[in-house]
């Protein structure tokens, strides 16, 4: 069984990539489990085609729900779970993730799956959001970033968190790539000592597929973007080991964006 957790700045494309990678891996014949850890519960929507009831919502009234109550099968037989969480502004999403993930791993036979993907909301802002990797539920992290300062800034924060809790990252997914931006991401990748696993360009097909609540591979199987995602998924499958990333001071981070550094 292999497992990864996807972290990255809000809106950077974590859920889109998580569902597309899940789909690609399932197409390779793997048994895939996609676990959405975001209270928004929108990680698995591209696989199921609609929102599914979240585990924590179910647990409000049933302390011990059976697996079939919160695990749903979607396209290409991918298993999907949404952990869910509080409505915006109240409660504690981090605590929710801790309770939800612990419940899943106590009750699910993990070895039934070849590959597990966790889609985690935003950065590692608190202990709850780090639980997935801290407790080694996921072997390592994939960081999604784009080439703008703020997303690299967030990626660096994630590196810092991983460094603190001594957790491995597998590498960086560079999403919504631009012609001029690659050099920044490359510099960042060198400095934090993480490989760029894949580069995903900005794609109208992705947007269009997302609108249909489907993965781009399902809607445009032969498109260039689908091939890119399939090849990235293969790379992920072939990663042997991760490493604890370095992290940069704010000055070092700014230097990345100096033209002649």
């Amino acid at each position: 069984m292999r497992s990864i957790a996807i972290y990255g700045k809000g809106g950077i494309g974590k859920s889109t990539l998580a569902s597309n990678i899940a789909y690609a891996l399932s197409k390779f014949g793997l048994k895939v489990l996609l676990i959405g850890c975001d209270p928004k519960s929108d990680s698995t929507i591209n696989i199921i085609g609609k929102h599914i009831p979240s585990l924590l919502d179910i647990m409000k009234t049933n302390k011990n729900p059976s697996i079939d109550m919160f695990l749903f099968k979607g396209s290409n037989n991918i298993s999907c779970i949404e952990i869910g969480g509080p409505e915006p502004g109240i409660g504690c999403a981090g605590r929710g993730i801790i309770v939800g993930v612990n419940y899943i791993f106590k009750n699910l036979n993990i070895n039934d799956y070849d590959f597990i993907i966790f889609d985690v909301p935003a950065d590692i802002v608190c202990g709850g959001l780090a639980i997935v990797v801290k407790e080694k539920y996921a072997e390592g992290v994939i960081i999604v970033t784009s080439d703008d300062f703020m997303s690299i800034y967030a990626a660096n924060n994630i590196c810092r968190g991983l460094n603190t809790i001594r957790v491995n990252a597998f590498g960086i997914l560079y999403n919504k790539s631009t012609k001029n931006g690659i050099k920044y991401v490359e510099k960042f990748s060198r400095k934090v000592n993480l490989p760029i696993i894949g580069i995903i360009p900005y794609s109208e097909e992705i947007i269009s597929a997302n609108k249909m609540m489907k993965t781009v591979i399902e809607v445009y199987p032969n498109s260039n973007i689908s091939n890119i995602i399939k090849s990235i998924s293969l790379s992920i499958l072939n990663i042997k080991e991760g490493r604890i990333p370095n992290w940069l001071s704010i000055n070092e981070l700014e230097e990345i964006f100096y033209e002649n550094s």
């Binding site: 409000k60 969480g85 109240i90 409660g91 605590r95 929710g96 309770v99």
Partner: peptide, 10 residues
């Protein structure tokens, strides 16, 4: 309890 800690207890 755990529920309120996650979803809020107001």
């Amino acid at each position: 309890s755990e529920n309120e800690l996650i979803f809020g207890g107001e």
